[in-house]
Design a protein around this nucleic acid. Structure first.
Lengths: 350, 350
DNA sequence: GTGAAAGCGCTAACAC
DNA sequence: GTGTTAGCGCTTTCAC
């Protein structure tokens, strides 16, 4: 805000103050080469003197680059999506652009409205967790985009970024096997969900690779909720001679949290009697008792990777491939190490 | 995207198609009066035919309204701030504008950088949880703003929106008193934090109003963390003849969650032996055992209210007052109703 | 009720 | 190296 005129300083004010032309100032601001030391310094000084701040609306209008990116996720209030947003935000800041954030609530109409807003804001590109069945709207707007999350897998031949579920499942199974749980039980999502099949297939394939017969694993279907996990675990405990040394791999953290409650309900203790492994890495897993050991999706990295991929897309040098971001093991105490316990017993005897 | 030309349709394309002038089209789009039925219809049709989408960059440039709002919060990953962001987002969508979201990590430098980005994007206004000690940057940019969160209280004479802590404390104390906990203990934050004094003062004032001598309340200092709350609760239990029928009001939910752990550590049970009341309403409180009863801050409403207040500010009809958003009681089972238990006992006897 | 024309602040050719 | 010039797509007088 210019003290003298009461309005914001423009590039013309800076040019006048510096005794140079608009274009020279613009060149300095854009960090172009072919600029004399003297000119650069005078512009610097004039910018400070006038309090000039670049008008991105004007820049965007002229150059066709708004310096804006769009992010459409189901719900910013969901901790996983908040992590994604944060990762995208940070990467955008590093690239010197800003992020418009929208929540779709898994509602195709809201999604369409948000895409329209992005188009009107002339974002340089968008990162979207798609809820609609087709990408007609996206094509219509003709803006570069990258899909994120598991729902993006429905669209091959598009750039997309998501968790590496297969690697996460392998990681989880290997941890269980290494700690002596040679026959882990599974609590799965409902049959109606695609994610269930994906999870189960990954388990089967890795079991075979590790010489475990997947058909002998006990499984319970549930519904991805705490209460669902609780009753699924109750059924497992009844079926498994009171559950001693049982280990259960749950397809998400909410069900795992319910599993911990069910173990306590049955008068058993986790992890002494029953071990639990979750999948997701929700923050609440840190506050259960015991803390929930889980396979954590790396939301932040998904977000930052998506921004990077989006820039490849904008530049037109995109590969249109799905990028899989690895999951991590988050150890918080709900797993008993049977091999260690066995060793301890031997040591005690000896 | 125009099929014929390969570039986006502009108002000129629409005008051409409709056989009208730029200005008439602009008027229809702006919903102005003094438009013939015929013109309106022809424009409608031409918009559909060309796939025209309004260019907000150009609109903003000409009209001085970018249709963008800025939100600067400490961390979108923190569930409270995610709620605030969601509330702001929804209200912004209702007003037909979009939201740029930034996380400052309580870092004054990052905050300054984000404010600058907002200024350059020419946002119509900003909602900020201030971390810097002064608002010099904000004044410098001369953009309308509304402060949010407790740190905004440092700046009177500015429009701001935050939780009504006093009302929340009253609500909490009244619940405890109504359930027969006439002498609740307190677990507070560290002496260095302003929030501690605010909480304690609210407790004192309300106690006096309810004829409770605040000086007889046991208090423990802690640090707003789970482990801090756990050891503070341990000290309380030792001081209070093993803790039967103790009730503890914790200044935040993390310490309350720690308190629940300490009760179990001591071989006691919550809420049968010790009742716990938290403050904040973090989602993890739903997964402890028992669930944490708490005073919940209404982040979503703070966000939406802030957008509304910001529009008052932009319109220049702002009152420059702090708006207090009430807290709510969230009952999840960590409070025993002594009066009910007493009644039950009497009934059992009789 | 509609059109013509000016201009918001900037960039990108194009001269010199 | 620097200046001149012509717009980007829109709103907004000012005519008619």
């Amino acid at each position: 805000m210019n003290k003298d005129t009461g309005r914001r300083a423009t590039i013309v004010d800076v040019a006048k103050k510096a005794g140079l032309s608009k274009s020279t100032v613009a060149r300095v601001l854009a960090g172009s080469s072919n600029i004399s030391q003297d000119a650069a310094e005078r512009v610097q000084a004039a910018v400070l003197a006038t309090g000039y701040e670049r008008n991105h609306l004007a820049v965007g209008m002229r150059s066709g680059r708004s310096g804006l990116l769009g992010l459409v996720i189901p719900d910013i209030t969901n901790p996983f999506w908040a992590e994604v947003a944060r990762g995208a935000q940070d990467q955008a800041a590093r690239q010197g652009v800003s992020l418009l954030v929208f929540s779709s609530d898994w509602d195709a109409d809201k999604e369409a409205a948000h895409l329209r807003a992005l188009c009107q804001a002339r974002v340089d590109g968008a990162i979207i967790n798609p809820v609609a069945d087709n990408l007609a709207d996206l094509d219509r707007f003709g803006m570069p985009f990258v899909l994120i999350g598991s729902s993006a897998e429905r669209f091959p031949d598009t750039s997309s970024v998501g968790s590496d579920i297969v690697q996460g499942v392998r990681l989880g199974l290997d941890v269980l096997l290494a700690q002596g749980h040679v026959q882990p039980a599974l609590i799965l999502g409902p049959k109606s969900r695609l994610a269930r099949a994906r999870f189960l297939r990954a388990v089967h394939e890795h079991c075979i690779e590790r010489d475990v017969d997947p058909s002998i694993l006990m499984t319970e279907d549930s519904d991805y909720t705490v209460e669902g996990g609780r009753s699924a675990m109750k059924r497992l405990l009844q079926a498994h001679q009171n559950g001693q040394h049982l280990a259960v791999f749950c397809a998400n953290d909410l069900m795992a949290l319910g599993g911990i409650l069910a173990i306590r309900d049955a008068g058993l203790s986790c992890p002494q009697d029953v071990s639990i492994l979750g999948f997701d890495g929700i923050p609440s897993g840190a506050f259960s008792w015991p803390g929930l050991t889980t396979i954590e999706k790396d939301g932040r990295r998904i977000g930052s990777t998506a921004v990077t991929a989006l820039y490849a897309e904008i530049a037109g040098r995109a590969e249109h491939e799905r990028i899989y971001v690895p999951c991590r093991l988050l150890e918080r105490g709900s797993l008993a190490d049977l091999s260690e316990m066995a060793t301890a017993r031997l040591v005690a005897k000896g």
